[in-house]
Amino acid sequence: MKKELTIILAEDDEGHATLIRRNLKRSGLMNKIIHFKDGEETLDYLFQTKEKKDGIPSLLLLDINMPKIDGVEVLRRVKEDPDLKRMPVIMITTTDDPREITKCHELGCSNYISKPIDYDKFVDAIRKLGLFLLIVEIPDVNKPMD
């Protein structure tokens, strides 16, 4: 993943967001991370960047339980949009409800990470995500499709 690419983090819990950012950084991921605290803010930003043509973010890290508009709904609207739908979305959430996970996969999320309560596991999951993002080629969402 190229350094200049931006990551959006939609997470209503400030603490979680901080922990995620710290641990992504510790895994070596130096990309810019923009944090939003609810689904509405996130969607507003995504649709604005799309209109302004100043580049759709490369990746969306999305929590499910958020005020105003929840993560599942954000995912649905992103995947409905012809431009935004190419952006990979990774769900990061405390939910361990298998049906919710299935639903997100059905809507087209790229990956799903449960936030384990156990901090070591949590750190492990986030660091692995960071490592994964470091090596994975994320397609440039803003390039026209071949």
Binding site: D13, H16, Y119
Partner: peptide, 17 residues
Amino acid sequence: THDLRSPLVNIQGFNRE
């Protein structure tokens, strides 16, 4: 129960921090 887990992540997480 679900909502109680979120603060718990922070308690454990920042304790480790």
